[in-house]
Write a protein that binds this DNA or RNA. Structure first.
Lengths: 245, 245
DNA sequence: CGATTTATTGAATCGACTCAATTGATGTGG
DNA sequence: CCACATCAATTGAGTCGATTCAATAAATCG
């Protein structure tokens, strides 16, 4: 099922027509990518809005000397910046982590939504605002949290975001990130990421093995990461907008 | 003059009616605040969109144990998140740094813009996208740049953003941030901020004294901070939207 | 299976931090 | 308008978290 619908339904109840519209978004121009492939590069002219249907991707920035920073992860159901085509060129790159299925949503489609699908338009704004909140939290993470807090925090965030789109099973989820990826996302060296993960493991806060993450007690991991889910704005805040079935 | 108009005019040529609308935004509910006053606090219900008319403010987040991170600065002409009232509660706080004049733009006003002022609506989207790009760059800054690169980068950004709204004079600008503010924004300790500033001073990259910043050679400071202005998207990219005078 | 990527470990180093004291500004009330 | 109080900036010394370099082990892939 389209993970975008799944996610939006957590925020606002959609009408069948709304759902049809979102299904159409996810069946138009759809592309398959291999792992570790760039979808868009810094400097490119932005074209469509990308919607991740399956697989993981990330936004990253890079300095001349090679230092790389992952600035956000795209999980299934995530979209890149709405209205990005207003800008002349990309200020960051987007690349896949795993093989991924990505729909390119053309500008006209978004115009159509804004004109006639107010609930979806609001859900898209919600998505935009949550995206911004996540970026702020990452700044907090990099600026103030210690290595293990930082790692615990990131893992909590990913776990919750995956759960929102139904990609967890109990207290486990697929976890395709390498320790290098985690290093680039947390601003730590990969050696230190390794040691930090071991610390979380010996504290029995996580089990991370063969691309699977298990969180025995989300509560404990959250407390280790000073994690407060408020910034993800996951309660059904848009209920007053519900479509009547 | 309304710094918002000034800024938007760098992106798209507005019609006299557009300008009138923006002037109205800046003369409706306007409030004066003293320095170091909270405008909104984490947990509050978001009401209006705030527009900074004069003075400096910032967004910040705080942990239980007191660690504080400034996640963005608001300079004259900046607005807080558009459509923030979609969310149930604030995930961060907003506070002034200097005394400030701030207009509260009500929801209805923004609806009006979206309905009948497409150029302004686009300019607001541009503002939103640039805001997101700045947040990403801060993540890069915190994750990858060394202390002095980081500081140089931040100073470049502030200088350019001030210049965009006409608040620089030659290579100088007012600079009300304390070293503690800089510490909270860069994720460094204030002692290290002090030493980092001294380093930039002895490299003759900045003169910073009595709340005034002078940048003898922006080019050199940019290169010290590995600064690329692309993320600010300052060229007149919206020219195809220009109003015909 | 060998080749390559990913993960792990140890040792030495360094950037940035903490603690603590001092100096310099700014501001306020008597 | 000075004296005192407060806040901001500076300096030194010692420490610690995280890094780099380098080597090895384990996992994954064609």
């Amino acid at each position: 099922m389209n993970p975008l619908i799944r996610k939006f339904e957590k925020f606002v109840r959609l009408s069948p027509i709304d759902r049809g519209m979102l299904t159409r978004a996810a069946t138009g121009r759809v592309r398959q990518y291999g792992p570790r492939i760039d979808i868009a590069r810094e400097g490119d002219q932005p074209k469509d809005v990308h919607l991740i249907l399956s697989g993981w991707a990330c936004r990253y920035k890079q300095l001349e000397d090679g230092r790389r920073q992952i600035v956000s992860f795209f999980l299934p159901g995530d979209m890149c910046d709405l209205n990005i085509f207003i800008l002349k060129e990309m200020d960051h790159s987007i690349g896949t982590i795993t093989p991924a299925t990505i729909a390119d949503v053309p500008r006209e489609f978004l115009d159509e939504i804004n004109a006639g699908f107010p609930r979806i338009a609001t859900a898209l704004w919600w998505e935009t605002l949550v995206g911004a909140a996540i970026q702020r939290e990452w700044i907090m993470n990099l600026g103030q949290r210690t290595a293990s807090e930082r790692m615990a925090h990131l893992l909590c965030e990913i776990f919750l975001r995956l759960r929102l789109v139904g990609l967890t099973e109990g207290n486990s989820c697929e976890f395709p990130l390498t320790q290098s990826d985690l290093a680039e996302a947390t601003g730590l060296s990969k050696v230190h990421v390794n040691r930090t993960l071991q610390e979380l493991r010996t504290g029995e806060l996580i089990v991370l093995k063969s691309k699977t993450l298990t969180v025995p007690s989300l509560k404990h991991l959250m407390s280790a990461g000073l994690f407060h889910a408020n910034y993800l704005h996951m309660e059904r805040e848009g209920s007053h907008l519900d479509a009547n079935e």
